[in-house]
Amino acid sequence: MALPLASVQLYSLATEFSADMNGSLDKLATIGLKNVEAFDFVRRPAEIRAALDASGLASPTGHAPLLSDELWTPDGSIPTPANEVVFEAAAEIGMTTVIDPMVPTERWLTEDGVQDIADRLNAASEKAKEFGLKVGYHNHAQEFLADFDGKTAYQRFLSLVDPSVAIELDLFWALVGGQDVVSLVREIGDRLVAIHVKDGVAPASNPFAPDAPEFSSTSLDQRHAGDGDVPTVEALQAATNVQYAVIEYDHAPGEVFEDIENSYRFLIDGGLAA
């Protein structure tokens, strides 16, 4: 298998990117990155495309809500435009895959909820084809709370979504969800096209559980890739079809560009990504 391409989820530098889009992308290019994963791109596709072109970067993947009327995150809610609007913006930027970043906990706790998630994603996949795009899903930890007949809600979801749907596995959140990350990578197999390279110390309990206290990303003890609990090397080596190794920090431990460069060097120097 060819090495996956190194990328970075721009949510990691949300503050810096909002303050200085061009300068932030230039810094990423100086680090050596050639790809990014955009977020919050639907309201400003032309601006983002121009900034990417100026920095010599591409955004082959991007995050946008496709499955929720409103997207909750630990740092606030994001309104959701119609799928067609999302796909028009993604095509303008030059993306190939639009990935839903999160579906809230309560919808993962019942079989009907999981079926609805899969049905919506399958429908979005069909619509995306009209724009020359694919869709995908990115996990957190709530997908692993419920079990149905010995299978997690996430495993049930995988059995229900069309094979054309791309899977992006966030290694840190899968670990927080109590998963054997390497085994999960093997189970997903060739459907796994992107991995979120994220490390840290897993909290003692799943913060997405219904009875968990409300939390924000600032409470997370996240580390540079290779410095935490996540078996990043083993997971990437177990992957059979991963195209993108996407660096992400929900809460960068230090200066964010230095943190990104640290994880980038971990990937490149370790022969894990190109």
Rank of each mutant, 00 (worst) to 15 (best):
P45I: 03
P213A: 15
A273R: 09
L272E: 05
S12F: 05
A141S: 13
A82Q: 15
A46N: 05
D269I: 10
G23V: 15
S164Y: 06
V85R: 14
L109F: 13
G76I: 14
A29N: 06
A123R: 11
D26L: 02
A29W: 05
V246K: 07
D199G: 04
A2L: 12
V197C: 04
A46F: 04
E130W: 02
N35L: 00
D119T: 10
A153V: 08
Q9W: 03
D147N: 12
A51H: 11
L272I: 11
Q155S: 01
V98C: 03
A46Y: 03
G132D: 07
K27D: 12
I195H: 09
L171T: 12
Q179I: 06
A252W: 06
D75P: 06
P210I: 11
K151T: 00
T30V: 12
G132Q: 08
G228D: 07
P104E: 13
S125R: 08
S59G: 12
P231R: 13
L28G: 04
D26I: 00
V86K: 03
L67R: 02
L160E: 12
K198G: 14
K151H: 04
N22P: 01
L169Q: 07
V8E: 09
N139T: 03
H63A: 08
G178D: 10
A273H: 09
P65N: 13
E88W: 02
P4V: 06
P207D: 09
V197T: 11
E37H: 00
P45Q: 01
E92M: 12
G62K: 03
S59K: 06
V193S: 11
V230I: 10
G178Y: 11
A238H: 09
L109I: 09
V182K: 13
R49W: 10
L109T: 14
Y264I: 15
V185C: 07
G226N: 06
V182N: 08
H251A: 00
A239F: 05
S205Y: 09
L121S: 06
M1V: 11
I247R: 04
P231H: 14
G113Q: 12
I78H: 03
M95K: 05
L169H: 08
T80M: 11
L3G: 11
E187L: 14
N122T: 04
L33P: 03
E258G: 14
G56Y: 08
Y264E: 12
T240H: 08
V233P: 05
G177P: 09
E92Q: 14
H196G: 04
L67K: 01
S77M: 10
F148G: 00
V201H: 10
K151C: 00
F148A: 01
A89G: 05
F157S: 02
K34Q: 14
H224L: 04
K27R: 15
S125D: 06
G228Y: 11
G113C: 13
E248K: 08
V86T: 15
F208V: 00
D75I: 10
M21Q: 11
P231K: 10
R191N: 02
G270H: 11
E126R: 07
S77I: 10
K127C: 01
A19R: 10
S18N: 13
E255G: 05
S263E: 04
A273E: 03
E261A: 12
M1T: 14
V181D: 02
V193C: 03
A146H: 03
T218C: 02
T96N: 04
M95F: 00
